[in-house]
């Protein structure tokens, strides 16, 4: 490492004296445990950087904000040829993936790994996102299909809105579809 010596005061540039109009919109369309996390982690990271963040929950992603299901998302090795054991490269043969007991075991293992990293479960994670100023929106069509209304949804969800409302709210945002 080269030694550089400077006598002027080095202060981190937090870039927050100028108002940024950066905005992030994340569409969460999956209800598997493993696919719930990417959106939550990115939303949380964006909020920590001072970026206005909106999450839109649609189709199976609706399970992430449905009170009766949000605690119980599952992870399955079925159809996931990349799945291997946490340590080493031991893979589950696809023929064994659907056997009874495999899904609960895989879910339990993944939940433990996530908890070991100090990463919260889905409801706690949503709470943290809301506390950090994030906006949660539920998809109108999904609510209608599943016959759910706001009383069935996590309290932090601001409203059930349709696709056009979401597009309007996220004008100018960078968008991720997960």
């Amino acid at each position: 490492m080269t030694d550089t010596t400077t006598r002027t005061s080095v202060v981190p540039n937090f870039d927050d004296d100028t108002e940024t109009d950066r905005k992030l919109a994340i569409i969460c369309s999956k209800g598997n445990l493993d696919m719930a996390y990417p959106g939550l982690i990115l939303a949380n990271a964006a909020l920590g950087e001072g970026i206005e963040t909106h999450l839109f929950f649609t189709f199976w992603g609706f399970d992430m904000i449905t009170k009766s299901r949000m605690n119980d998302l599952k992870f399955s090795p079925v159809g996931n040829t990349a799945m291997h054991m946490p340590m080493g490269d031991v893979r589950v043969p696809q023929a064994l993936a659907p056997i009874p007991g495999m899904q609960p075991m895989a879910t339990k293992m993944m939940k433990k790994q996530i908890a070991d990293l100090g990463v919260p479960e889905v409801p706690d994670f949503l709470e943290q996102i809301v506390a950090s100023g994030g906006h949660l929106w539920a998809c109108r069509m999904s609510a209608d299909m599943m016959k759910l209304d706001e009383s069935d949804l996590y309290d932090g969800v601001e409203a059930i809105i349709n696709a056009s409302d979401f597009i309007e709210k996220t004008n100018g945002a960078q968008l991720l579809f997960i």
Binding site: F14, D16, G48, E49, G50, Q128, A131, S132, G133
Partner: peptide, 12 residues
């Protein structure tokens, strides 16, 4: 609370 951290140390 997380909310308070955002008040004490704004934005980041």
């Amino acid at each position: 609370p997380t909310k308070q951290l955002f008040v004490l140390f704004p934005k980041k």
